[in-house]
Simulated scan of single mutants.
Amino acid sequence: MSILSENIRYLRNQLGYSQQKVADDLIITRGRYAKYEDDATEPPIEILLKISRYYHVSIDLLVSVDLRKIPLKEILELPDNRILLPIKVDNRGENKIEIIPHKASMGYLNGYADPEYIESLQTISLPFLKGGKYRAFPADGASMPPHKDNAYIIGKYIENLADMRTGKTYVFLTRSEGITYKRLLKVNKETLEVSADNVFYKSYEIHLSDILEIWQYASSLATQEFSKDDFQFDNIAIIRMLQELKNEIRELKGNSPTTDNI
Protein backbone atom coordinates (compact mmCIF):
# COMPACT_ATOMS: atom_id res chain seq x y z
CA MET A 1 0.00 0.00 0.00
CA SER A 2 1.12 3.59 -0.63
CA ILE A 3 2.10 5.94 2.17
CA LEU A 4 -0.96 8.06 1.42
CA SER A 5 -3.42 5.17 1.79
CA GLU A 6 -1.75 4.00 5.01
CA ASN A 7 -1.74 7.53 6.43
CA ILE A 8 -5.39 8.34 5.80
CA ARG A 9 -6.44 4.96 7.21
CA TYR A 10 -4.28 5.61 10.28
CA LEU A 11 -5.61 9.15 10.82
CA ARG A 12 -9.22 8.01 10.47
CA ASN A 13 -8.70 5.24 13.01
CA GLN A 14 -6.99 7.67 15.40
CA LEU A 15 -10.14 9.80 15.34
CA GLY A 16 -12.40 6.77 15.70
CA TYR A 17 -14.35 7.69 12.56
CA SER A 18 -16.01 5.30 10.13
CA GLN A 19 -15.30 5.44 6.41
CA GLN A 20 -18.92 6.51 5.93
CA LYS A 21 -18.52 9.52 8.26
CA VAL A 22 -15.34 10.70 6.56
CA ALA A 23 -16.88 10.22 3.13
CA ASP A 24 -19.98 12.18 4.16
CA ASP A 25 -17.82 15.00 5.55
CA LEU A 26 -15.80 15.09 2.32
CA ILE A 27 -19.05 14.95 0.30
CA ILE A 28 -18.04 11.82 -1.63
CA THR A 29 -19.31 8.23 -1.59
CA ARG A 30 -18.00 5.73 0.94
CA GLY A 31 -16.94 3.43 -1.90
CA ARG A 32 -14.83 6.16 -3.43
CA TYR A 33 -13.13 6.97 -0.14
CA ALA A 34 -12.55 3.26 0.57
CA LYS A 35 -10.63 2.97 -2.72
CA TYR A 36 -8.22 5.69 -1.51
CA GLU A 37 -7.57 3.79 1.73
CA ASP A 38 -7.21 0.48 -0.15
CA ASP A 39 -4.78 2.09 -2.62
CA ALA A 40 -7.05 1.01 -5.46
CA THR A 41 -6.99 4.54 -6.87
CA GLU A 42 -5.40 7.89 -6.10
CA PRO A 43 -7.51 10.93 -5.19
CA PRO A 44 -7.48 13.88 -7.61
CA ILE A 45 -5.82 17.05 -6.34
CA GLU A 46 -9.10 18.71 -5.29
CA ILE A 47 -10.04 15.69 -3.14
CA LEU A 48 -6.49 15.37 -1.81
CA LEU A 49 -6.70 19.00 -0.71
CA LYS A 50 -9.98 18.31 1.11
CA ILE A 51 -8.47 15.26 2.82
CA SER A 52 -5.44 17.34 3.87
CA ARG A 53 -7.61 20.02 5.45
CA TYR A 54 -9.95 17.45 6.98
CA TYR A 55 -7.15 15.71 8.89
CA HIS A 56 -5.23 18.97 9.38
CA VAL A 57 -2.08 17.44 7.92
CA SER A 58 -0.24 18.91 4.93
CA ILE A 59 -0.28 17.14 1.57
CA ASP A 60 3.50 16.87 1.69
CA LEU A 61 3.34 14.86 4.93
CA LEU A 62 0.40 12.76 3.76
CA VAL A 63 2.23 11.48 0.68
CA SER A 64 5.82 11.31 1.93
CA VAL A 65 5.97 10.48 5.68
CA ASP A 66 4.73 7.42 7.59
CA LEU A 67 2.61 9.22 10.17
CA ARG A 68 2.26 6.08 12.31
CA LYS A 69 5.82 6.67 13.49
CA ILE A 70 5.17 10.22 14.71
CA PRO A 71 2.94 11.23 17.69
CA LEU A 72 -0.03 13.28 16.56
CA LYS A 73 1.05 16.30 18.65
CA GLU A 74 4.44 16.34 16.92
CA ILE A 75 2.79 16.11 13.52
CA LEU A 76 0.78 19.24 14.25
CA GLU A 77 3.93 21.06 15.41
CA LEU A 78 6.10 20.17 12.40
CA PRO A 79 7.18 23.34 10.54
CA ASP A 80 6.28 21.76 7.19
CA ASN A 81 2.80 20.79 8.34
CA ARG A 82 1.17 24.01 7.26
CA ILE A 83 -2.11 24.39 5.46
CA LEU A 84 -1.52 27.81 4.00
CA LEU A 85 -4.50 30.08 3.43
CA PRO A 86 -4.35 32.49 0.50
CA ILE A 87 -4.07 36.14 1.53
CA LYS A 88 -6.42 38.17 -0.64
CA VAL A 89 -6.05 41.91 -1.11
CA ASP A 90 -8.37 44.62 -2.38
CA ASN A 91 -7.59 47.18 -5.08
CA ARG A 92 -5.67 49.25 -2.51
CA GLY A 93 -3.44 46.35 -1.58
CA GLU A 94 -5.07 45.84 1.84
CA ASN A 95 -5.97 42.40 3.22
CA LYS A 96 -9.49 41.16 2.60
CA ILE A 97 -10.90 39.81 5.86
CA GLU A 98 -13.67 37.27 5.32
CA ILE A 99 -16.67 37.62 7.65
CA ILE A 100 -18.36 34.49 8.99
CA PRO A 101 -22.03 35.50 9.45
CA HIS A 102 -23.73 34.78 12.79
CA LYS A 103 -26.67 32.91 11.29
CA ALA A 104 -24.40 30.67 9.22
CA SER A 105 -21.59 30.14 11.70
CA MET A 106 -22.14 26.36 11.88
CA GLY A 107 -21.88 26.21 8.10
CA TYR A 108 -18.25 27.25 8.45
CA LEU A 109 -17.45 23.83 9.92
CA ASN A 110 -18.37 22.26 6.59
CA GLY A 111 -17.15 25.06 4.34
CA TYR A 112 -13.87 26.23 5.92
CA ALA A 113 -11.85 24.13 3.43
CA ASP A 114 -14.09 24.89 0.44
CA PRO A 115 -12.65 27.72 -1.72
CA GLU A 116 -16.08 28.42 -3.22
CA TYR A 117 -17.64 28.86 0.23
CA ILE A 118 -14.87 31.19 1.40
CA GLU A 119 -15.11 33.13 -1.86
CA SER A 120 -18.83 33.69 -1.24
CA LEU A 121 -18.27 35.41 2.12
CA GLN A 122 -18.43 39.17 2.50
CA THR A 123 -15.14 40.89 3.28
CA ILE A 124 -13.80 44.00 5.00
CA SER A 125 -10.36 45.61 5.08
CA LEU A 126 -8.64 47.08 8.12
CA PRO A 127 -5.40 48.89 7.23
CA PHE A 128 -3.86 48.34 10.68
CA LEU A 129 -4.00 44.53 10.33
CA LYS A 130 -1.09 43.41 8.22
CA GLY A 131 1.42 40.60 8.03
CA GLY A 132 -0.84 37.57 8.15
CA LYS A 133 -4.17 36.01 7.24
CA TYR A 134 -7.21 37.34 9.14
CA ARG A 135 -10.83 36.27 9.40
CA ALA A 136 -13.81 37.63 11.39
CA PHE A 137 -15.86 35.25 13.57
CA PRO A 138 -19.13 35.78 15.49
CA ALA A 139 -18.66 36.16 19.26
CA ASP A 140 -20.73 34.62 22.04
CA GLY A 141 -21.08 37.51 24.45
CA ALA A 142 -22.32 35.32 27.31
CA SER A 143 -19.05 33.43 27.69
CA MET A 144 -16.46 36.08 26.80
CA PRO A 145 -17.35 39.47 28.26
CA PRO A 146 -17.13 42.33 27.53
CA HIS A 147 -17.79 41.13 23.95
CA LYS A 148 -21.50 41.27 23.25
CA ASP A 149 -23.64 39.00 21.13
CA ASN A 150 -23.46 39.99 17.45
CA ALA A 151 -19.90 41.25 17.92
CA TYR A 152 -17.07 39.88 15.77
CA ILE A 153 -13.65 38.63 16.80
CA ILE A 154 -11.00 39.10 14.14
CA GLY A 155 -8.42 36.36 14.36
CA LYS A 156 -4.99 35.91 12.82
CA TYR A 157 -4.38 32.43 11.44
CA ILE A 158 -2.01 30.30 13.53
CA GLU A 159 0.08 27.86 11.50
CA ASN A 160 1.97 26.25 14.38
CA LEU A 161 1.11 25.36 17.98
CA ALA A 162 4.51 26.69 19.03
CA ASP A 163 3.23 30.19 18.17
CA MET A 164 0.48 30.01 20.81
CA ARG A 165 0.84 31.72 24.20
CA THR A 166 -0.97 30.97 27.44
CA GLY A 167 -3.15 33.80 28.66
CA LYS A 168 -4.03 34.86 25.12
CA THR A 169 -7.43 34.32 23.49
CA TYR A 170 -8.06 32.28 20.37
CA VAL A 171 -10.84 31.29 18.03
CA PHE A 172 -10.83 27.50 17.69
CA LEU A 173 -12.58 25.58 14.93
CA THR A 174 -13.18 22.05 16.20
CA ARG A 175 -15.09 19.09 14.84
CA SER A 176 -17.13 18.77 18.04
CA GLU A 177 -17.98 22.43 18.81
CA GLY A 178 -17.57 24.30 15.57
CA ILE A 179 -16.47 27.88 16.26
CA THR A 180 -15.52 28.66 19.86
CA TYR A 181 -13.64 31.63 21.32
CA LYS A 182 -11.68 30.89 24.49
CA ARG A 183 -8.60 31.83 26.53
CA LEU A 184 -5.67 29.41 26.46
CA LEU A 185 -4.69 28.24 29.95
CA LYS A 186 -2.27 25.40 29.30
CA VAL A 187 -0.73 23.35 26.50
CA ASN A 188 -0.69 19.65 27.38
CA LYS A 189 0.75 16.69 25.52
CA GLU A 190 -2.43 15.88 23.61
CA THR A 191 -4.83 18.65 24.63
CA LEU A 192 -5.20 22.39 25.12
CA GLU A 193 -6.80 23.59 28.35
CA VAL A 194 -9.06 26.59 27.69
CA SER A 195 -11.67 28.62 29.51
CA ALA A 196 -14.27 31.31 29.01
CA ASP A 197 -13.76 34.63 30.77
CA ASN A 198 -17.22 34.32 32.31
CA VAL A 199 -16.74 32.78 35.81
CA PHE A 200 -19.87 30.66 35.40
CA TYR A 201 -18.17 28.49 32.78
CA LYS A 202 -15.62 25.88 33.85
CA SER A 203 -12.35 25.35 32.00
CA TYR A 204 -12.10 22.28 29.80
CA GLU A 205 -9.72 20.54 27.41
CA ILE A 206 -9.75 20.44 23.62
CA HIS A 207 -8.04 17.43 22.06
CA LEU A 208 -5.46 18.38 19.43
CA SER A 209 -6.94 15.81 17.07
CA ASP A 210 -10.28 17.67 17.28
CA ILE A 211 -8.84 21.02 16.16
CA LEU A 212 -9.20 22.10 12.54
CA GLU A 213 -8.08 25.74 12.73
CA ILE A 214 -6.73 28.19 15.31
CA TRP A 215 -6.97 31.99 15.02
CA GLN A 216 -5.34 34.32 17.55
CA TYR A 217 -7.27 37.40 18.68
CA ALA A 218 -6.17 40.43 16.66
CA SER A 219 -9.09 42.84 16.96
CA SER A 220 -12.84 42.99 17.53
CA LEU A 221 -15.86 44.76 16.10
CA ALA A 222 -18.79 45.71 18.34
CA THR A 223 -22.21 46.05 16.74
CA GLN A 224 -23.95 47.22 19.94
CA GLU A 225 -23.18 50.20 22.15
CA PHE A 226 -21.63 49.43 25.55
CA SER A 227 -23.31 50.51 28.80
CA LYS A 228 -21.91 51.06 32.28
CA ASP A 229 -23.31 47.71 33.37
CA ASP A 230 -21.11 45.95 30.81
CA PHE A 231 -18.06 46.82 32.89
CA GLN A 232 -19.48 46.00 36.34
CA PHE A 233 -19.66 42.62 38.08
CA ASP A 234 -22.99 40.89 37.83
CA ASN A 235 -24.71 40.53 41.21
CA ILE A 236 -24.83 36.77 40.84
CA ALA A 237 -21.09 36.68 40.14
CA ILE A 238 -20.47 38.68 43.33
CA ILE A 239 -22.61 36.25 45.34
CA ARG A 240 -20.64 33.37 43.92
CA MET A 241 -17.33 35.00 44.82
CA LEU A 242 -18.56 35.60 48.39
CA GLN A 243 -19.66 31.99 48.68
CA GLU A 244 -16.25 30.78 47.54
CA LEU A 245 -14.62 33.11 50.08
CA LYS A 246 -16.83 31.71 52.85
CA ASN A 247 -15.84 28.16 51.86
CA GLU A 248 -12.16 29.08 51.96
CA ILE A 249 -12.54 30.67 55.43
CA ARG A 250 -14.40 27.58 56.65
CA GLU A 251 -11.57 25.36 55.39
CA LEU A 252 -8.96 27.55 57.08
CA LYS A 253 -10.83 27.37 60.38
CA GLY A 254 -11.08 23.62 60.05
CA ASN A 255 -7.32 23.29 59.52
CA SER A 256 -6.23 25.71 62.26
CA PRO A 257 -5.14 24.29 65.69
CA THR A 258 -7.58 24.64 68.59
CA THR A 259 -6.69 25.63 72.17
CA ASP A 260 -7.09 21.97 73.18
CA ASN A 261 -4.21 21.04 70.93
CA ILE A 262 -1.81 23.72 72.26
Rank of each mutant, 00 (worst) to 15 (best):
P86C: 00
G93N: 01
I8Q: 04
G107C: 05
D234H: 13
I238L: 04
L129G: 01
Q20V: 14
F137L: 04
Y170R: 09
A218Y: 02
E42D: 15
Y36P: 11
P115Y: 00
G155F: 01
N110T: 14
A162D: 12
M144D: 01
D230T: 02
E193N: 09
Y10F: 12
E205P: 10
Y108R: 06
K103T: 13
P44D: 15
E177W: 03
K21D: 12
M144L: 09
N188L: 14
G107L: 03
K35A: 14
S176F: 08
S125V: 04
K69Y: 06
Q19Y: 12
S58I: 04
Y117F: 11
I8N: 02
L242I: 15
E213R: 06
R175D: 01
R53E: 09
N81I: 08
L126S: 13
V65A: 03
Y33C: 03
P257D: 08
A139E: 00
R92H: 15
K21R: 11
Y134S: 02
L221V: 15
E159K: 07
D66L: 05
T41H: 03
D149A: 06
T180E: 05
I238V: 14
E193W: 04
S125Y: 02
E225D: 14
L212G: 02
K246T: 12
Q216H: 11
F137H: 00
E193Y: 05
D163I: 12
P145I: 09
S143M: 13
G93I: 05
R30T: 05
Y204K: 00
D149Q: 11
Y134P: 02
I45P: 09
D210C: 00
S220H: 00
Q232W: 08
L85D: 12
L15H: 11
G155Y: 04
K21W: 12
L208M: 07
I3V: 15
I249C: 07
G93A: 04
I99C: 00
N81W: 03
K73Y: 14
S176V: 10
V57G: 00
L49F: 11
K73I: 08
R30N: 15
I158N: 02
K50D: 07
M106S: 09
I27T: 14
F128P: 07
K182S: 00
K35P: 05
G16V: 04
E6F: 04
A34G: 09
L185K: 04
S125A: 11
Y108C: 01
Y17F: 15
P127H: 06
R9S: 15
N91I: 07
I214Q: 02
E159P: 10
K148F: 09
D149H: 15
Y217C: 00
G107M: 02
G132S: 01
E6H: 08
Y108K: 04
A151I: 09
